[in-house]
Computed example of a mutant assay.
Amino acid sequence: MSFRSSKNSDNIVPLPGRRALVAPDAASLSPVLIVLHQDSSTPGRVGNALRALGYPLDIRRPRFGDPLPETLDRHAGAVVFGGPMSANDPDDYVRREIDWIEIPLRERRPFLGICLGAQMLAKQLGAQVAPHHEGRVEVGYYPIRPTAAGHALCSDWPERVYHWHGEGFQLPDGAELLAEGDDFPVQAFQHGHAFGVQFHPDVTYAMMHRWTTRGCVRMDSPGAQPRHLHFEGRAVHDVVERAWLNNFIAGWIVRAPHAVLLEAAE
């Protein structure tokens, strides 16, 4: 699998500063659509950050029959989370989700894809999703390097972030590379109002316990870190990653059109 990068940062608009953390009146906010892929999944710290800003969450699990909206006119944005499946799987719900991402892209709503969600976004935009050519994975904490465009967007990127994946993706045509890595070069990108991150800033302490217990087989894969290093890494790197996530979410969600923010109050 080959990875490509873009150096055109003309479409990068910096996320608002800390003043953006002051949310509008909660009564005026439309919900954020949350797409999860397992019955036990939660929106984790992304959900916590959105609730802290006053946004209700509309949680749906298409894998188990929940419909996705035909428009995001009544939503402030959408987040598609990770899961153990692949964006290349032939399951109908996987294909439907990838096709559905065309709606937030067309309507220019804030969209965030996390891990599998980022891979689905990349596929919707025409990029290839594939395993590492040597079978390596990222399971644990690994370094990322923000690009100039990433620094222009926000300045407080963490040095290491939490990962749990065995596939990566090319940078889609027309997208801007925001952060890169070693085994999986494309770690974060932006395409208009849509963002994709390969890592998992959403993971809570409880989620890390659950993943490293139920998914322990993944820690036998090439490149994976043993369980104890996950918790050692969290003690060192989590404060910065959590602060980055809160600032990122606050700047990402205010890209919603003003009319959407006011709709719930009408």
Rank of each mutant, 00 (worst) to 15 (best):
G82D: 14
A148H: 06
G233M: 07
T42F: 02
W100N: 09
R210G: 04
V94T: 12
A206E: 15
W252P: 09
A87C: 10
A264R: 15
Y93P: 04
S6M: 06
A149V: 10
H209E: 15
E134H: 10
G54L: 08
S221H: 13
P226M: 10
R61M: 13
L171P: 13
P62H: 11
L15K: 00
H200W: 07
A78H: 07
V32P: 02
R60K: 12
N246P: 00
G77E: 10
I144W: 00
R51L: 14
G77N: 04
T204G: 11
L177K: 02
Y55A: 00
V129E: 05
A76K: 00
Q128T: 14
A118H: 06
L171G: 09
E263A: 15
Y93T: 11
G135R: 10
L229Y: 01
G17C: 09
H37Q: 15
L112G: 02
N246H: 12
P31V: 04
V46T: 03
K7L: 12
F3N: 08
Y55W: 06
F231H: 15
H191R: 15
L33F: 04
M85E: 14
D10Q: 13
V239K: 11
N48I: 05
P62K: 08
N247T: 07
Q128H: 13
T213M: 05
P67L: 06
E176T: 15
D58P: 05
G126K: 10
P90W: 01
A118V: 07
Y205V: 12
F248C: 04
Q198D: 09
V80E: 05
V46A: 01
S41V: 01
A235Y: 04
Y205N: 13
I59H: 07
A194T: 07
P226Q: 11
F3G: 01
S221G: 03
Q187P: 01
A27N: 05
P62S: 12
E180G: 13
P56M: 06
Y55E: 00
P222W: 09
W164F: 13
L245D: 03
M1Q: 08
E266K: 11
V217S: 13
V35G: 05
E102N: 05
R61F: 03
L33N: 08
G82H: 06
D66S: 15
T147M: 07
D66I: 04
R106A: 13
G47V: 03
R160T: 07
F3D: 03
H37I: 07
P90T: 11
R160W: 04
I59L: 14
D220K: 14
W157T: 03
T212G: 00
F81C: 02
G65D: 13
S86H: 11
N247H: 15
A175D: 05
V35M: 07
L116Q: 05
A127D: 07
A76C: 14
T147N: 08
R61P: 02
P31A: 03
H163A: 02
M207D: 15
D10L: 12
A235H: 08
V186Y: 08
L229A: 12
N88S: 14
L72S: 07
S28H: 03
G83E: 09
P143R: 04
R136I: 00
V129Y: 04
A27V: 13
W244K: 02
N247V: 01
P131S: 10
S28E: 04
Q170K: 04
G113F: 01
V197S: 02
R60L: 07
R95P: 00
G251L: 03
P131R: 06
E102L: 10
Y55D: 00
P257A: 03
L121I: 14
P158D: 11
V203H: 09
D58S: 14
